[in-house]
Nucleic acid binder design. Sequence first.
DNA 1: GTCTATATTCAGATAGAC
DNA 2: GTCTATCTGAATATAGAC
Lengths: 195, 195
Amino acid sequence: MARRGSYAKGVAKREEILDAALEVIAREGFRKTSVREIATAANLSQTGLLHHFASKNELFTEILRRRDEVDAVNASTDPEARFIDTFPMIIRHNSKVPGLVQLYVSLATEAPDPEHPAHKFFTERFEGFREELVAEIQEGQRSGEFNTRLNPELAANSLLALADGLQTQWLLTPTLDMAAHIEAAIESWRSDPKP
Amino acid sequence: MARRGSYAKGVAKREEILDAALEVIAREGFRKTSVREIATAANLSQTGLLHHFASKNELFTEILRRRDEVDAVNASTDPEARFIDTFPMIIRHNSKVPGLVQLYVSLATEAPDPEHPAHKFFTERFEGFREELVAEIQEGQRSGEFNTRLNPELAANSLLALADGLQTQWLLTPTLDMAAHIEAAIESWRSDPKP
DNA sequence: GTCTATATTCAGATAGAC
DNA sequence: GTCTATCTGAATATAGAC
């Protein structure tokens, strides 16, 4: 903050690195990818890159954070759009970028460790999505869109867990249609049609 | 097979190792646990243990396979019991052994690699559970227990994916009640009560 | 801020004695 | 079958020059 532009410059460089990382992981996949490989993709040495991040784990966590930002922008230009409605599109997009899905499940697996930077990221991410979903389900129940027998908290958790589990299954069996399963789950929430 | 007892003895020793491994992982947790730690728990050196397994990855895959065997026996003494009915109990039991859950999600994350021994294990495991579930759902639809609007394949995949995703969430947030979510999902399959 | 070079750590695999 | 000892390789992290 003290010197002119230094802060913004640092942020810009970080984003440049993160976007290069996203691009290379989406293109080449992610399987125990090393910091060096990301550094090469960003035209930097390993140390040049780690100058901008505290550690390997922070780097990979920030890549995921950046991915969420990009996805949120791409999913909908309408700031009023519901999460419920954009979620299937995000999932469908995931099936275009297996490397990023692999990165996501890998870090999710490491996230239980409270020392890991991904711990905070996944905890907050889950909480945020969960609260948003609960609110949307409750609103849908008031409007008559969703079945009132649905428990909003259970349904919200289950949809998010379903999405995570589908990604694991899909990496193993890429013929699985993740988005179709998500859509069917949301469909099952709807009120029975009046006879 | 040629010499008396040698084959059976080898199998017995493997099982002894696997049971020791299950015990220590359940008790101490699993976080990038090394072969050496498993070896120590089984009163063996690293090489003494790896004499019985081709590699680290095969060892850990076999630990999971053994876990499934033990779980299947413990879940129900009745060979006629449906998977649908024993599944919530298995999940409930999982919440007593976080180390084994951690091992499971860790290997599941590595399983997409076709060279990894866990690849075959998870593929077959998923297929087996899926087929069993599809058959039980169809039978339940014929008997009137389950809603006939349910797509059996989608529902079966979704229940298995839900279970996987819940484990990831639960490792992050151990207050989450995995079994309650599984039970709610199965409950949602039931036919609407006649008015 | 970025680099080269190196220290450090660690784990899996292997050789060969008993 | 089991051990001790060692090899090998990988990858992060650090020191210090430019």
